[in-house]
């Protein structure tokens, strides 16, 4: 019994560490004056979310989080910064300004306060330990009951690729 409570305390400590990583990275992503630093903050925050997936026993999702988000999406956004940047800070050097802050602080506070109150009043009491699902079961789900979303996401990705190529395609002779 003592051993079980030890493990539970370890889980709480890990949760606190991951939550701190997420908040630190998210804060850096939100208030940093340089876009590259904001991007590094986003990557830190993504690693924290991957850690939370591991705590939830969703190891495949954690791996995909690191592969897709940290590996692919953040590199894409780095490319966007690199290809568009006019000055050293990417155009964020002035900060949000007074009017920007006036709009942005309620945008942060209103949903957070409303949903935290809703959660603490109406929050469902979940199980103490997460379920353990094998990767085999996930694959069987993809090829069994959830085939349609699996095929649809491939169509969406194809449309996104074709759209991106078409948008940035320069016709010869126009310029």
């Amino acid at each position: 019994m003592a051993r079980l409570s030890d493990i539970s305390v370890l889980g709480q400590i890990a949760f606190a560490i991951y939550a701190l990583i997420i908040l630190f990275g998210g804060g850096m992503a939100v208030i940093s004056r340089s876009l590259v630093r904001a991007m590094v903050g986003l990557v830190i925050s993504l690693f924290g979310v991957a850690g939370m997936y591991l705590l939830l026993l969703a190891d495949f999702v954690a791996l995909m989080q690191i592969l897709i988000y940290v590996g692919a999406v953040s590199v894409l956004i780095f490319f966007a910064i690199m290809l568009t940047r006019a000055s050293a800070d990417g155009g964020e050097g002035d900060g949000p300004g007074k009017r920007g802050l006036l709009r942005a602080i309620p945008a942060f506070l209103v949903p957070t306060a409303l949903m935290v109150i809703m959660l603490s009043v109406y929050g469902v009491k979940g199980a103490g330990t997460p379920k353990n699902i094998s990767v085999n079961a996930l694959g069987a789900g993809l090829l069994g009951p959830y085939t349609l979303p699996f095929e649809l996401i491939s169509v969406v990705l194809l449309a996104a690729i074709v759209g991106a190529v078409l948008l940035t395609f320069e016709k010869r002779g126009v310029n």
Binding site: A29, V30, L35, I77, G90
Partner: peptide, 22 residues
């Protein structure tokens, strides 16, 4: 919810499209 709020803050406060994407 905190991640949602931080993202919404960035979406409103940032000046550039890349910052909003973050």
């Amino acid at each position: 919810v905190l991640l949602l709020g931080l993202g919404f803050y960035a979406l409103v406060a940032r000046r550039t499209l890349v910052g909003m994407l973050i």
